Computed example of a mutant assay.
Amino acid sequence: MTTSKGGGTAARRGPHKGGADADKGPDKGANKGQRTRASGGGAAARGGTPAAPPGGAPASAPLTPGRVGTYVLLLVAGVLVALAGTLVQAAWFPGGLLLALAGIGALFYGGSRATGTAGGVLVPGAAWLVTVFLLISDVRPEGDFLFGPGLGSYAFLLGGIVIAVICATAHQFRATAAPRGRVGG
């Protein structure tokens, strides 16, 4: 929103040619390029393009080589966090379970912040989920398995899924939230 000091996109493009604001007031357009609170309208109403969401990159960010590399690193990190969490949560119960869930949360939140898109949560989340369910189903003929039939294993599985959903939902709230700034000004 432009202020009386002349900031914003309308002041950078120059004064308006005609329009509703040019015929108002005794000085006939002395306030060109400035909006009042009642005039409303955003960039789209002034003929500009709408701004990107305030959460960082737009929802449909183009795939650049750097972004693809970030997604590949998040995919590998998702697999590694799943393997480490599987071993740690059973080894030091309940501290290991909390450590494994904290690692999952850090990975998902960090992926969301690093990419600025929902894919930053979905890519490591999918890698984590597939890895954990492959580890669950891998029972050797000797009877060896990584997940025991205890409460900690179920808490790790459900906790990881809940953390992924929370991080993805929090990213959506950040992407659609109103920009921070002064109220009424």
Score class of each variant (00 low, 15 high):
109 Y>K: 10
54 P>W: 12
79 V>L: 10
51 A>Q: 13
139 V>H: 08
104 I>M: 11
120 G>W: 07
77 A>E: 05
167 C>P: 01
63 L>K: 02
167 C>A: 15
51 A>S: 14
126 A>E: 00
54 P>Q: 09
159 G>D: 03
56 G>D: 09
93 F>E: 14
101 L>K: 05
55 G>N: 11
115 T>R: 06
113 R>G: 06
76 V>D: 01
96 G>I: 02
49 T>L: 14
113 R>A: 14
152 G>I: 06
140 R>A: 13
61 A>H: 07
115 T>W: 02
132 V>A: 13
132 V>K: 00
146 L>M: 12
142 E>C: 09
90 A>W: 05
146 L>N: 11
156 F>R: 02
84 A>N: 08
87 L>D: 12
53 P>W: 06
122 L>S: 05
133 F>Y: 09
92 W>S: 10
118 A>Y: 05
153 S>N: 04
94 P>C: 09
117 T>L: 00
48 G>I: 10
155 A>S: 10
78 G>N: 02
107 L>A: 03
111 G>Q: 03
74 L>P: 05
162 V>D: 11
121 V>K: 00
105 G>M: 04
58 P>T: 11
116 G>T: 12
75 L>H: 03
88 V>I: 15
86 T>I: 08
150 G>A: 12
77 A>Y: 01
148 G>M: 06
164 A>W: 07
